[in-house]
């Protein structure tokens, strides 16, 4: 068991520092390591875990905890999550500390104004990347459009999520979608 925990740390700690652009950029490498290199699970299991991590609350990167769980139980989940989060956290806090000390300086204002449109472009790019990773079909695109329109008009995100879950459960009951499993 200790070897497994060490193996998990050795897989996820490096991923922490190369995960530029966040989760999606490291899913492929995670899958390769978990399935091909270490044989902790099958390809189909990884795909299931990905779906679970995408729907569950919290950061999608918690798929690391699921992989760790599959490999070595609770200790594995904890080891994988800490290995994935701690290295990048140290780096971000170091940069953030320096940034915070600049306070309300004019230089910081200009940098913020310059970064804002980059952030907007990255948000849209991130949505597109996740839609691809989810393998979203026409129904998902329709749901995405309708939910966004509702949220822009001030609808509660809690209510939106609940309605979509009910809609999908209903459609599945009626045999309109899914069924194959």
């Amino acid at each position: 068991m200790p070897e497994r925990l060490l193996a998990l740390v050795l897989v996820f700690a490096p991923l922490s520092l190369v995960s530029l652009g966040g989760g999606p950029s490291i899913f492929a490498e995670m899958q390769r390591q978990a399935v091909e290199v270490h044989g902790w699970m099958t390809d189909a299991q990884f795909v299931d875990l990905f779906a679970i991590s995408r729907a569950a609350p919290g950061p999608g990167s918690l798929i690391a905890a699921l992989v760790g769980w599959q490999a070595a139980g609770f200790a594995g989940a904890l080891a994988a999550a800490l290995a994935l989060y701690l290295p990048s956290t140290c780096l971000l806090l170091a940069v953030g500390h320096w940034w915070r000390r600049k306070g309300d300086s004019p230089a910081r204002k200009v940098i913020e104004r310059g970064l804002a449109p980059i952030a907007v472009g990255l948000i849209f790019a991130g949505v597109l990347t996740l839609l691809r990773a989810d393998g979203a079909g026409w129904l998902e695109l329709l749901v995405l459009g309708a939910c966004t329109a509702a949220l822009l008009r001030g609808a509660s995100p809690y209510l939106v999520l609940l309605l979509v879950a009910l809609l999908y459960a209903g459609l599945q009951q009626a045999g309109v979608i899914g069924g194959t499993g």
Binding site: A51, I52, R54, A55, V127, L130, L131, D134, A136, L139, E140, L141, V143, L144, C147, T148, A150, L151, V160, L161, V164, A165, L167, Y168, A169, Q172
Partner: peptide, 11 residues
Amino acid sequence: VLAGVAAAGLA
């Protein structure tokens, strides 16, 4: 159902 929730979350 997970696919629907994922799409709604992205919104």
